[in-house]
């Protein structure tokens, strides 16, 4: 887990970009994984050696003023050289707007401006069954997390001590089979994959929350934990289900961001305070991972 700010200042956020690096980096490959979905690999050893699952980077097309702002993209996985040293980063993105459509046209050798690692990353959760719930492109933070919890991979500059889980399940809901991305990567990592689709073209026909309910009913683990990333109504539903089932739940919020480093105050989300009221907190430097039961949905 990244080092929290050492200053005990009540107005300062927990996770400033203190170990972040900004660099112009070359794209190594840009591969189509599924409908409107791509995996991009770029070389950036300084970020690759520090980043942990759940953290993100800001990515911008180098030298262009339109689109102007960077986009926050989660770590999908790090790429290591022949002796196991992290040298590159994979991100997975869905083409939804001006920036991601341009990103999809990039080829090897094109340059990006990137800065990171940013945000808190997933906490080291003591659990023997980690259940990851993804809605659509919300699957991206979970490959690295699953690999880490199954002891397949290590992330971060300081040895982050994650107590291995015996089992990691991914509940992955998509609109339609054509959007299914990265399932081979998850299965190869030893992750138990359960699918659902809105149109019934693959897996359980219906919501991913129904798959989660089934997995929660099956698991015998006393200290199971749920992590979730996807559209807000889906995360809200997962959080509500976990609350009823008395299960820990962490969500990775995808609030729109302009800077990713805490200076613009755009990406605020309503977080419950100890006195029961709520306050706007910056997702980039207080999250993006939050205890789902503390979010004012």
């Amino acid at each position: 887990m990244p080092r929290s700010s050492t200053e005990r200042n009540p107005l300062h956020a927990g996770y400033y970009a203190d170990s972040a690096n900004q660099a112009r980096v070359p794209i190594v490959e840009n591969v189509r994984l599924a409908r409107d979905t791509y995996r991009m690999r770029f070389e950036c050893p300084e970020i690759a050696k520090r980043i942990v699952p759940g953290q993100f980077l800001m990515v911008r097309l180098a030298g262009l003023n339109d689109p102007l702002l960077g986009r926050p993209l989660a770590l999908y996985d790090t790429v290591c050289d022949s002796v196991g040293k992290p040298i590159g980063i994979d991100i997975v993105y869905l083409t939804v707007g001006k920036m991601t459509r341009r990103l999809a046209q990039c080829v090897a050798g094109d340059e990006l401006d990137v800065w990171g690692p940013l945000g808190n990353g997933f906490p080291a959760i003591a659990t023997d069954h980690l259940i990851m719930v993804a809605g659509g492109i919300g699957q991206t933070p979970f490959l690295a997390l699953g690999q880490e919890y199954l002891g397949r991979r290590v992330y971060g500059a300081t040895s982050r001590s994650v107590q291995s889980a015996h089992k990691v399940t991914l509940c992955y809901g998509i609109r339609s089979a054509g959007f299914l991305a990265g399932v081979a990567d998850f299965k190869k990592a030893g992750i138990d994959v359960r699918l659902s689709s809105d149109d019934g073209s693959i897996g359980h026909p219906g919501f991913v929350t129904e798959v989660l309910r089934q997995v929660l009913a099956e698991t015998s683990s006393e200290n199971r934990a749920v992590v979730c990333c996807g559209p807000e109504p889906m995360m809200h539903a997962v959080a509500a289900l976990c609350k009823r089932e008395n299960t820990r739940c962490y969500v990775s919020l995808e609030t729109p961001m302009a800077c990713g480093i805490g200076i613009c105050f755009s990406c605020v989300t309503r977080v419950r305070q100890p006195d029961g009221s709520w306050d706007y907190k910056r997702t980039c430097v207080e999250g993006p991972i939050f205890d789902a039961h503390k979010i004012e949905w």
Partner: peptide, 9 residues
């Protein structure tokens, strides 16, 4: 921000 945010960059 309040500058502290940018100390690492």
């Amino acid at each position: 921000g309040y500058a502290r945010e940018m100390a690492g960059l």
